[in-house]
């Protein structure tokens, strides 16, 4: 703030600088206190991970050999596959590339992501296309009629 007219003595100028500094940092601090709640507000509170470690994915008779089924496992989709040999396998259905939901390709006996043409084998290993990592494997147990899928510890 330039003062027109006569020059101010040194002490007045120094004092004015101090006042400006104090006022300035006060205003800056108050703005920070206004912004902080808004910044915190835009990120939603974390939802606790589902403690549910196992789920009934299907009934035995739901799946023929060489078919797959996407089911809900906690808050995420998972894939149950019955191989040509009749064995059950389960994986996370979340493609490790960009989060799309994968499916079982009966013609290729592989797991396929339609979004960017990524392929995984029946061990969940990424075999071609963009996926950088294998799919998470889940344990499968048959309890009577139920196919129970469990997340490893």
């Amino acid at each position: 703030m330039e003062d027109s007219g006569r020059p101010q003595p040194e002490s007045v100028q120094t004092g004015r600088r101090w006042v400006n500094l104090l006022l300035g940092s006060g205003v800056a601090a108050s703005i920070a206190t206004f912004l902080y709640p808004a910044l915190r507000y835009i990120i939603p509170p974390a939802v606790g991970e589902s403690t549910n470690r196992s789920v009934v994915a299907a009934k035995i008779n739901d799946l023929k050999n060489n078919t797959g089924k996407v089911f809900k496992f906690g808050s995420k989709p998972a894939l149950l596959v019955r191989t040509t040999a009749g064995e059950f396998k389960a994986y996370s259905a979340v493609c490790t590339h960009l989060n799309c939901t994968v499916q079982y390709r009966e013609d290729l006996h592989q797991i396929w992501c339609a979004c960017h043409n990524g392929f995984y084998d029946l061990e969940g290993r990424n075999v071609s296309g963009p996926p950088p990592r294998p799919l998470e494997n889940f344990e499968v147990h048959v309890q009577g009629e139920d196919i129970v899928v469990t997340r490893g510890a």
């Binding site: 996407v70 089911f71 809900k72 989709p77 894939l79 259905a93 493609c95 799309c100 939901t101 994968v102 499916q103 992501c113 339609a114 979004c115």
Partner: peptide, 10 residues
């Protein structure tokens, strides 16, 4: 449907 596979041709 959040619990269906991504369809082909997406």
């Amino acid at each position: 449907d959040p619990f269906a596979a991504a369809p082909a041709g997406i």
